[in-house]
């Protein structure tokens, strides 16, 4: 069941993404309304990270397009923020917590220029929001996994964007931190911002999210949580029905077929 909305803030149209010619997302069509807190769920390797990365323009699309606020990503970058998976960087980098959070302001600061007072204030404020202000001068390798996650969240918050994409912000955080983070997300949504989150814990989906996107190489469902989050659809997402799809994907990789010609 895929519910499309009027005036979506995010519209993904007929999106196919391949690595080495092997499609890992097939013809995704979805839209998300303004102010939603949306959860993306699906098993490992379902393409959740890939979906977010292709929306953020970080992986090439084989077909389809993405529109944010009814525009191309490049037109609205200043209003879009991305929280990558924590494992995607080397935390042994010589930087402090504050340095990393300040990176969220780099595009506002502009090329050649140094951070201004307003930027450092924004970074400090974001650190306070996630409860990490005491760790501001700590070297980032000396943080726990949950603290690293909060640093990434703070970095995204400094962007003061209107739509946030977060890849597993709850991975490896304790219950108290998770609660604090979801509080921040709810606040964002109350302010009319949209938050789209890759999530693994099915228990908490119905309390955290008002919109759910179920993914397993293809889009299984997308819509309001109370209508979509049913055991049949979960079974379809997590069940083993999709082996056919991944087998065909492997064939395409071997045969080097063009995976859907670019339009």
């Amino acid at each position: 069941m895929i519910q499309q909305v009027e005036n979506p803030v995010l519209e993904v149209h007929d999106l196919t993404v391949s690595y080495d010619k092997k499609p890992v997302l097939w013809g995704i069509d979805l839209s998300v309304p303004k102010g939603a807190i949306a959860g993306i769920v699906g098993p490992n390797g379902a393409g959740k990270s890939t979906l977010i990365k292709s929306i953020m323009g970080l992986t090439a699309l084989s077909s389809g397009y993405v529109k944010i606020f009814d525009q191309e990503l490049n037109e609205v970058r200043q209003r879009v923020s991305y929280v990558p998976q924590r494992e995607s960087v080397d935390w042994d980098f010589p930087a402090s917590v504050f340095d990393v959070v300040l990176m969220g302001r780099y595009s506002k600061i502009g090329l050649f220029k140094r951070p201004r007072k307003a930027d450092t204030e924004a970074a400090l404020f974001a650190l306070k929001q996630v409860g990490m202000d005491k760790f501001k001068d700590r070297q980032i390798s000396q943080l726990s996994g949950g603290q690293q996650q909060r640093v990434f969240l703070a970095r995204a918050l400094t962007q003061q964007a209107d739509i946030y994409f977060m890849d597993e912000p709850f991975a490896g955080v304790d219950a108290a931190t998770e609660k604090a983070i979801i509080q921040i997300l709810k606040k964002l949504s109350e302010d009319g911002k949209t938050v789209i989150v890759v999530h693994h814990d099915l228990q908490s989906v119905s309390t955290y999210f008002d919109w759910v996107i179920m993914l397993n190489l293809r889009l299984v469902a997308s819509g309001p949580t109370d209508q979509i989050f049913t055991s049949e659809l979960l079974e379809e997402t997590y069940g083993g029905k999709l082996t056919l799809l991944s087998e065909v994907g492997e064939l395409m990789k071997k045969g080097q077929y063009p995976s859907r010609d670019k339009q």
Binding site: L58, R77, S81, Y82, G104
Partner: peptide, 10 residues
Amino acid sequence: FDQEYAKSIG
């Protein structure tokens, strides 16, 4: 430090 994030902020 984080190339993908750098791309994401344009």
